[in-house]
């Protein structure tokens, strides 16, 4: 049975929820759960060490851990410490076998990441407690992870690919609209652009669901069958998305980049390796950048910060001693992929 526009609009809050404010069903992540259960079947080898879950922001790490607290013996109300705020006195207050730490990511300064993980590592060693550390790819940087004694990385954090997104939406539509076999509400083309196969682990749950919700808000409130299509998404981006460009060169670069995507990587195709720093800079040169630092300052950092380009590299300190938070390879966000549609 079709789902009407008015029905999906009314149930949008539940179906596209991506915050902890609403109890959404937990989909899949069976392999991740099994891995955690296997790891901690015996706590002894873990004493003094840590398990690191390292995946980009918005991919569901905190939600995942929130949901498996029983496996870890964490009390229900336990909230994580934040890497940037770790101090010996806060660590001393932690109870139980595990120390649960979040936000080991680029939202924290390099110095605070270093300091926080160093303090944590010492505390775990001294007490024999076990760290559960969540963060983005920064945690894969050996300069940071070395502070923890023999840390292990979680191998199997399932990426948000097309199959996963279809499954999530089907489960939620079935639950919230009470249809045993709900029809698709996204066209195949739109799925391809929202979660391109080539992007793997960097597709963000939060940004994709938020985007779909925005599209749904534009639907007319009527009984027509709901189907969100690629042209609708393109139309939304072209009419509603405003990146607040700061300089003319940024605008020129953006136009150049959009043309490049349209010609070379329409809908994210062929981007398995991403776009290298050199390729990006070559495009920058085409619009008048003559020095790498100014290109980095005006394009790479602001575009990365605003989520218009995604990065799959491991954040690190660059030659100048600056925290490089969005290192190569780069990927245009789904908003840019849609914008590049002709």
């Amino acid at each position: 049975m079709a789902i009407s526009n008015s029905e999906i609009k009314r149930a949008a809050r539940q179906v596209f929820a991506s915050s902890r404010g609403y109890e959404t069903p937990f989909y899949n992540r069976d392999i991740s759960k099994k891995e955690v259960a296997d790891h901690f079947a015996n706590l002894e080898p873990w004493r003094g060490s840590a398990l690191i879950i390292s995946a980009p922001m918005g991919t569901g790490k905190t939600f995942f851990v929130d949901q498996i607290k029983s496996l870890l013996g964490l009390t229900e109300g336990k909230v994580p410490l934040l890497v940037g705020e770790i101090e010996p006195k806060t660590l001393k207050k932690t109870k139980g076998d595990f120390v649960f730490v979040d936000e080991g990511d680029i939202k924290t300064s390099w110095k605070a990441l270093h300091g926080g993980l160093e303090t944590l590592g010492k505390y775990l060693k001294d007490t024999g407690k076990i760290g559960l550390v969540l963060g983005d790819f920064s945690l894969r940087n050996p300069d940071l992870s070395r502070h923890l004694s023999k840390p292990k990385f979680m191998n199997s954090f399932e990426p948000l690919d097309e199959k996963f997104l279809r499954g999530v939406l089907k489960q939620r539509l079935s639950m919230y609209l009470q249809q045993k076999n709900p029809p698709e509400i996204l066209s195949d083309e739109l799925y391809n652009v929202l979660v391109p196969d080539a992007y793997g682990p960097i597709n963000s749950f939060r940004s994709v669901l938020t985007f779909i919700n925005q599209l749904v808000q534009e639907l007319p409130n009527n009984d027509a069958a709901c189907l969100l299509t690629l042209p609708m998404a393109v139309d939304w981006v072209k009419n509603q998305f405003d990146p607040e460009i700061d300089t003319d060169r940024q605008e020129n670069f953006l136009n150049f980049f959009l043309d490049y995507i349209a010609q070379s990587h329409p809908r994210g195709t062929g981007l398995e390796q991403g776009i290298s720093k050199e390729q990006m800079y070559l495009m920058g040169k085409q619009v008048g950048y003559t020095e790498w630092p100014s290109f980095q300052e005006e394009i790479l950092i602001p575009f990365g910060r605003s989520g218009m380009i995604l990065s799959r590299g491991i954040p690190r300190l660059d030659e100048e001693g600056q925290f490089e938070r969005w290192p190569e390879p780069y990927f245009p966000s789904h908003v840019l992929l849609l914008w590049a549609e002709t």
């Binding site: 607040e244 700061d246 300052e297 602001p302 575009f303 605003s306």
Partner: peptide, 8 residues
């Protein structure tokens, strides 16, 4: 900060 450079 939108797309402003850090310098800006």
């Amino acid at each position: 900060a939108s797309l402003r450079s850090r310098e800006r």
